[in-house]
Simulated assay, not measured.
Amino acid sequence: MRWSYSIGKIRGTELRVHITFFLLLIWIAAGAWATQGPQAATTSVLFILAVFACVVLHEFGHATMAARFGVKTPDITLLPIGGLARLERIPENPRQEILIALAGPAVNVVIWLLLTGLLGAATRLGDLQSMENASQDFWGRLALVNFLLVAFNMIPAFPMDGGRVFRAVLSIFMDRIKATELAARTGQIIAFLFAFWGLTGGNPILVLIAVFIFFAAGAESSDAVMRGLAHRAKARDAAITTFQTLAPDATLEMAAQAILHSSQSEFPVLAADGRLVGVLTRASVLTHPEAEHRAELVSTVMIEDVPTVTLETGMDAVLNALAAGSAPIVAVLDRAGRLVGFINRENIGEWIILTRR
């Protein structure tokens, strides 16, 4: 995700923080300082950090359960509205999806039990109105937050865990694509209710959450349609087979001319023996428009790590390769290992439009 920064890796999963999270901390600290002084500001920041520590544990709950089913979690990103664990793929087995979805809230239940059982923290819903008050019991507020995280995440709307559980249950009785579309529509209806509640109650946070839910539900539905189509297709069905290539020792001036005379966004870079050594993107050339860069070689700015598939590779594997890698294309090779085409995200979108009945 853009504007997010890595703060380390835990068990192969990169933990990232979005820049807006730091803006949230500054806003919380400034508000507490202005109303209650510097000590309250420090306590408020520590409380927010404790809340997001619980969010991180929640997301690692998903990641740990996913790992049991052979699904990797490349990264977890912290946002002002919570955490986002990016799974390599969503299991299509309903039981596995339910267990992965429930693992996150289960972590918050454990934290709540520890806070209330060991520390004697009281969970009072009436304290919700004064949650931002730094003078209130620290552990009590943290216990309440974990209680609310469980309740909120079990709402049957994407991208919350409850939405995934709802979709998994529906997919037991109907086609997975139809189940996803029904769950997505339910999520969007809930989003409208949240937006109405936020607008009438003067709560902008609810409106923000509603917008996030609405678009996330739509994205989930589109992804399910794409995955459904991918089951029945191979790489040859969507590969771009008419394209220009560049040599590693070509200059950026030559690449600029290729851009001007074609509509390609990516140019495969081939060695003298025809072997694929990388890909040059239109964006990487356009970010070096100055004359002094025109003599630079393509090999200095190309992306080298390009995933490859064969013509007979299933589209599921192509989609996974595009999602997991940093390259904008997946190269398609024939049986002899020669480049015969490539697939990019734009072509995937066109393929979906033209293939869906």
Rank of each mutant, 00 (worst) to 15 (best):
V211S: 02
L182Y: 08
V165P: 09
A217Y: 10
F214M: 02
L193P: 07
R141E: 10
F214Q: 00
R185L: 13
A168P: 02
G198K: 11
L182V: 10
F152G: 06
A216T: 03
W197K: 08
P159K: 12
L125A: 10
A224Y: 02
D161Y: 14
Q129T: 13
M154T: 14
R141M: 15
G140L: 06
S135I: 00
Q129N: 10
A230M: 09
D175K: 01
E132W: 12
I155A: 09
L229A: 06
T180E: 00
I177M: 09
D161S: 15
G187K: 01
I155M: 10
F212H: 08
S130G: 14
D127F: 11
T200N: 07
L229P: 13
R141C: 14
D161N: 14
L170F: 04
L148Y: 09
T123W: 11
V169T: 01
L199K: 00
M131T: 08
L128H: 06
V207Y: 01
S171V: 01
Q188T: 04
G198M: 07
R141Q: 15
L208K: 03
A179M: 00
L208I: 06
F212P: 12
A122H: 13
L149M: 14
F138V: 10
A168N: 03
G198P: 12
G126W: 04
D175P: 04
Q188S: 02
I177P: 01
A143E: 05
M174F: 06
S221C: 07
A224N: 02
F147L: 15
D223S: 15
S222E: 11
S171A: 07
A183K: 04
D223F: 10
R185V: 11
S135W: 01
S135K: 03
W139S: 14
P156I: 04
P156K: 06
G162Q: 03
A216V: 03
E220V: 02
T180V: 05
R176F: 08
I155L: 15
T180N: 06
V225E: 12
F196W: 10
L229D: 03
V211G: 02
D161W: 14
G162N: 05
W139G: 12
V211D: 01
N146E: 09
F215C: 00
T186P: 11
M160Q: 11
A122N: 13
L142S: 12
D161H: 14
S130M: 07
G163D: 04
R164Y: 11
S135F: 02
V169K: 03
V145D: 09
A157L: 07
A216N: 13
F147Q: 08
V225Y: 08
I190V: 15
R164C: 08
G187P: 03
G163H: 11
A224T: 03
M154P: 12
E181A: 08
V225H: 13
P156H: 07
R227M: 14
V165F: 12
